[in-house]
Design a protein around this nucleic acid. Structure first.
Length: 243
DNA sequence: CCGGTTGTTCAGCG
DNA sequence: GCGCTGAACAACCG
């Protein structure tokens, strides 16, 4: 569920509820959502892995973390953390983190960091990366302030596709490679979106969870790289470690 | 059936 | 105050 493209698919799936009044708001959440009763959804938005429910009174942020899920017009065994009921259906959210967004939404969010947004700004990403010279690229791709929406799968696939070793620091990357990294983070995210929409995401993985490099046929390395220590699949032969 | 994970935050420690 | 570690959350797959 969790990477950015999946959240965009959620937004598409619930667009039928935009502008609709809440018939009932309920769930396990400890947040006081009484302000939502008799209110309506003005808009659904996303920022990377954040799913944002906008109302006149307040904005709610849903984050699915690792295990979160949702159902539309469908129940599960467990009680939802949040249930939004409309006249034309309902959404249930399970095992997610829910927060009120206290600041005005454009203050709270840097839209230019969202790799799937029209507002995505590659130049801004490059400037942010320049402030983290010593950060490893495997960590940098997971920084949501820089690449909002990129998760571990996208990280692995991007680095494999551009033939960059995950343990290069930002400063070691030739300018041309840095450009490629930034470009592919967005490009692959849209491919992910397309494949996920067609239920064929996994079959397009080249590195993530894979055993063998499709380019060199050698065994891929699996290692918990960087400060983020997320599992990283890479080819020690064709993904270059720059000196 | 167990181990691990498409993620993030926070407490506790040295 | 820092950086690091582990816990917590709690679902599903292989």
């Amino acid at each position: 569920m969790p990477e950015g493209p999946s959240i965009l698919l959620l937004k598409e799936a619930v667009s039928v509820f935009e502008g609709k009044k809440f018939v009932q708001v309920s769930g396990n959440t400890k947040l006081d959502l009484s302000a939502l009763q008799n209110s309506k959804v003005t808009k659904f938005r996303t920022w990377g892995k954040h799913f944002i429910i906008c109302t006149k009174a307040l904005n709610l942020r849903i984050h699915f973390l690792l295990f979160g899920s949702y159902r539309i017009n469908e129940e599960r065994e467990t009680k939802p953390k949040l249930r939004l009921e409309f006249t034309n259906g309902f959404i249930n959210f399970y095992a997610c983190s829910i927060k009120m967004i206290e600041q005005p939404i454009d203050v709270a969010y840097d839209w230019s960091a969202d790799v799937l947004s029209d507002k995505w700004d590659a130049k801004a990403a490059r400037n942010k990366l320049k402030e983290h010279d010593e950060m490893l690229v495997c960590d940098a791709l997971l920084q949501q302030e820089i690449f909002s929406g990129v998760g571990n799968i996208i990280k692995n696939e991007v680095l494999y596709r551009i033939r960059v070793h995950p343990e290069n620091s930002i400063e070691k990357l030739p300018a041309r490679k840095l450009t490629e990294l930034i470009k592919e983070a967005r490009n692959y995210s849209f491919e992910f979106l397309h494949w996920k929409r067609n239920f064929e995401l996994k079959k397009h993985w080249l590195a993530h969870t894979k055993k063998v490099c499709v380019r060199c046929q050698i065994l891929l390395k699996k290692k918990h790289c960087g400060k983020t220590k997320r599992r990283t699949f890479y080819c020690e032969n064709c993904q270059v470690l720059f000196k």
